[in-house]
Design a protein around this nucleic acid. Structure first.
Lengths: 111, 111
DNA sequence: TGATTATATAGCCAACTAGATATATAGACG
DNA sequence: CGTCTATATATCTAGTTGGCTATATAATCA
């Protein structure tokens, strides 16, 4: 259970894949387009795209013999939501109450 | 260059580490505390903590013989900011102008 | 001091990953 | 049809990773 989140974060862990996502944020791009900026082989790009697609982060279109990729921002948002969730949990947590109390008990805190 | 972002996303790629972060979102915890929920060895936990600390996502305190870990939300926020940046880029992109135009040229769009 | 508790480190191994090259598939076009 | 362009798949390999057990360090306490 939540495997798709797992796939998303695993996909985001690679810098080349993040680069691909950044490129796709500016619009659709073909495999050949995507290959240029990174100094790696076409199969390597295709493999990365497969991972990204498996994570739902991108989608595959079709135009003539090319398969332009497009960003799926909703899937990206899910990863962002996990991060926000943890941060929110932290912000709302009462577990740090003792710290606050400790602070209040030392009125002459220098620094 | 931006290596620290890399470390953050790599750290987030593992489900156990995300679990640890989720636990720490509710307050400090020791290595022993953290070990319980996951069915893995103490050294495995320590290794994960080392990765998380290397990414700046957590910090190490000290209390008697224990080293309680605490979440660093600012570092987490940086990963979130990258995601938001890509989404923003997509939202603001003019590359999809043609789509809009195509839409406008079909006035009888139902729905 | 010696025993106990908490954590870290070392070394090992199986699984996975990112890259490469070689080859296959598929559509476009003359 | 054959050729070119675009992409996908197969196979291999070196490097990384996540887990383990065994052991080391470090602080506490009797």
């Amino acid at each position: 259970m939540n495997d798709s989140l797992n796939l998303k974060f695993a996909a985001l862990a690679d810098p080349t894949r993040r680069g691909i996502l950044a490129m796709l944020a500016q619009g659709e791009a073909t495999v050949t387009d995507l290959q240029k900026p990174f100094g790696i082989s076409q199969p390597a790009i295709s493999k990365h795209l497969k991972v990204l697609e498996g994570a739902g982060l991108i989608e595959r279109g079709r135009a003539a013999q090319s398969r332009p990729r497009r960003l799926n921002t909703a899937a990206l948002a899910e990863a962002g939501a996990w991060i926000d969730g943890v941060r929110q949990l932290w912000d709302d947590s009462f577990d740090r109450l003792d710290e606050l109390l400790a602070d209040l008990q030392q009125p002459e805190s220098k620094e």
